[in-house]
């Protein structure tokens, strides 16, 4: 069962139709916990992008030899391996980036979105399609995190990327994990509304 989508469609699918945060509602713990600033969201998004692409390709490559009854442990093992390898390589050769990203990379092992993509997509599709799907999902996650971070950083701390833009803190509440849920919910409603308006306009 091969996908009939082109590479570009796969990427766009991950960003829009099946956005991990606003559509699939997966990996909510990190989305809520970490998207406190734009930079944090971007860092975690980048880390997820790397791991998702590497894991998707690996699983797609070995899909015929993975026993169906132990596929989940195998996926977890694959993700853990890639997380560890990326962690070590960054620490060794890009210490500057590692100082900023190291803490995010270690968090990824238990991300639902990656396991789910391996199960739903990579274990059935070709390596090429899995690669582009991984890119789409990673980008979708990253953009979702950045969007959440944008709202929460602006409302919670009055800053953007660490620069003071408002000069005061409108709602400190938005930085706390609890507000992450409100934020996800409100933004999900907003995106759904845009979709409805768009579809209506198309039909008319």
């Amino acid at each position: 069962m091969a996908t009939d989508k082109t590479n570009l469609q796969l990427v766009v699918n991950g960003i829009l139709n099946e956005n991990p945060i606003f559509r699939l509602v997966l990996s909510m713990c990190p989305a809520v916990g970490i998207s406190t600033t734009v930079m944090n969201g971007f860092m975690l998004g980048t880390a997820v992008l790397f791991v998702q692409v590497c894991s998707s390709c690996t699983i797609s490559l070995f899909k015929n030899v993975i026993h169906p009854r132990i596929r989940i442990p195998t996926y977890t093992l694959t993700i853990a391996t890639w997380v560890t390898v990326i962690d070590m390589v960054l620490a060794a050769y890009l210490p500057e980036a590692y100082a900023k990203m190291g803490i995010f990379i270690k968090l990824i092992v238990a991300f639902a979105i990656i396991t789910m993509r391996l199960e739903m997509f990579a274990s059935k599709e070709s390596v090429n399609a899995s690669f582009w799907d991984g890119i789409g999902m990673g980008l979708g996650f990253m953009l979702g995190m950045v969007a959440l971070g944008f709202v929460r950083e602006l409302l919670g701390m009055g800053t953007l990327l660490g620069y003071d833009v408002l000069g005061f803190k409108p709602l400190l509440f938005f930085v706390l994990p609890l507000a992450g849920f409100f934020c996800v919910g409100l933004m999900m409603a907003f995106f759904n509304y845009i979709e409805i308006v768009y579809k209506r306009a198309k039909r008319a």
């Binding site: 026993h67 093992l77 391996t81 560890t84 390589v89």
Partner: peptide, 22 residues
């Protein structure tokens, strides 16, 4: 199969560790 998968994963991590540790 699970043992082989674990061994492979261990091997990859081990190689990465040796290559980057210094």
């Amino acid at each position: 199969r699970l043992t082989v998968a674990c061994l492979l994963a261990g091997l990859v991590m081990g190689v990465a560790f040796v290559a980057t540790n210094k």
